[in-house]
Structure formats: structure tokens, C-alpha cells
């Protein structure tokens, strides 16, 4: 058993905090900290379009899609997600992802996860270059 090894727990903790987990239900990592809290909300309400770029939705796994959007700052991204947004190419981001039942806090949590996912992939892309 690896659990019997004296370094097993420190190694496990180091791995958990250093590497986002890739879970069985997809290729979307569990992110540490507050960014990770909105993962299930994002999967339920956002992944259907943002996971595939449907309708022009920017894909968080593609660094070039998200770098310019992150530069706008979180208040702008929260506002676009809460109120809806017609982009410069007339793509539509529907208010609250098309789910009016979501609270402000839930929408922001989903945005936090998506931007966290984008930052994760931007960092990964830079490391690979």
C-alpha cells in the first residue's frame, strides 16, 4: 500500500495542489481554490456551448479565445454573463447562460471556473512553447 510509505501523504498533497485533477466525466480539471467551486454549475449551464465553441462561444481550452477576454477584467465578464452580451461579430452571450433560475452568485461562480480554466490552459500553452 502506498499509504504506508512515510512520504505518501506529502507526495499526494503536492500532486493535488500542483496538478489539477482530470476526472472521469470529461477533460475539465478540478481547479483549486474558489475557481473550482463553480465547476458543476459550469458543466450544467455553460459547457454545452463553451465546451465546443457552439454559436461562437469562446472555448476556455483555447488560449487565443480567452486571453483578450481576460484582459477586460472580471467585472466586465461578470456583467456580460449576468446581463447578456452581443459581441462585435454579433455573437450572442445570453443572460445567465440562458438559465434565469441561476442566482448572481451562481453565475459568478461559473464565470470564475471558466476563467480559471482559461488561465490554466493559457499557462499550459506557454509552458509547451
Amino acid at each position: 500500500m502506498t499509504g504506508d510509505h512515510p512520504l505518501a501523504l506529502p507526495i499526494l498533497l503536492a500532486w493535488l495542489f500542483a496538478t489539477p485533477q482530470v476526472v472521469a466525466d470529461g477533460h475539465y480539471p478540478v481547479l483549486p481554490g474558489e475557481a473550482g467551486a463553480g465547476r458543476s454549475l459550469w458543466l450544467e449551464n455553460c459547457e454545452g456551448c463553451h465546451g465546443y465553441g457552439i454559436g461562437g462561444a469562446p472555448i476556455p481550452m483555447q488560449a487565443e479565445d480567452w486571453a483578450p477576454r481576460l484582459a477586460k477584467g472580471m467585472p466586465v465578464l461578470y456583467r456580460h454573463a449576468l446581463e447578456g452580451f452581443i459581441g462585435p461579430d454579433y455573437s450572442e452571450m445570453p443572460a445567465r447562460g440562458g438559465n434565469p433560475k441561476l442566482s448572481d452568485a451562481e453565475v459568478k461562480a461559473a464565470v470564475d471556473y471558466m476563467t480559471g480554466l482559461a488561465r490554466f490552459h493559457i499557462t499550459k500553452t506557454r509552458k509547451e512553447k
Binding site: G55, G56, I86, D89, Y90, E92
Partner: peptide
């Protein structure tokens, strides 16, 4: 279809 949706419908109806 995407161009029609964005440049015609979204622009004239929503924007």
C-alpha cells in the same frame, strides 16, 4: 446559417 443568425437576426433583432 451562422452568418444569417449573427449579422441579420442578432444585429437587427437583439442589438
Amino acid at each position: 446559417r451562422t452568418v444569417y443568425t449573427k449579422k441579420i437576426v442578432n444585429r437587427l433583432v437583439k442589438k
